[in-house]
């Protein structure tokens, strides 16, 4: 561990703003992209299910 205390760790020797800005943005964007992909995958599956559901119903009715 390079830092004596939590306060020093946050301050990063005076460069805290830059370090945490860079890390924060990177983490936020990476996590955001994972979430968006997962949501898109779910939506796609739902869409497929919906189509399949309608098709099976159409086949039965007539």
């Amino acid at each position: 561990m390079q830092f004596e205390s939590m306060i020093e760790f946050v301050a990063m020797g005076g460069h805290g703003l830059y370090v945490w800005l860079a890390y924060g943005t990177t983490c936020a964007v990476l996590i955001g992209s994972v979430l968006s992909v997962r949501i898109a995958a779910k939506k796609q599956m739902q869409q497929l299910r919906l189509v399949a559901f309608h098709q099976t119903r159409c086949k039965r009715e007539p």
Partner: peptide, 20 residues
């Protein structure tokens, strides 16, 4: 962020290298 040594010139801002 926590264990790598700081750069002797750039200090702790050097740690941005690990995401950049």
């Amino acid at each position: 962020l926590a264990f790598a040594p700081a750069d002797y010139q750039q200090g702790n801002s050097f740690r941005i290298i690990y995401v950049h």
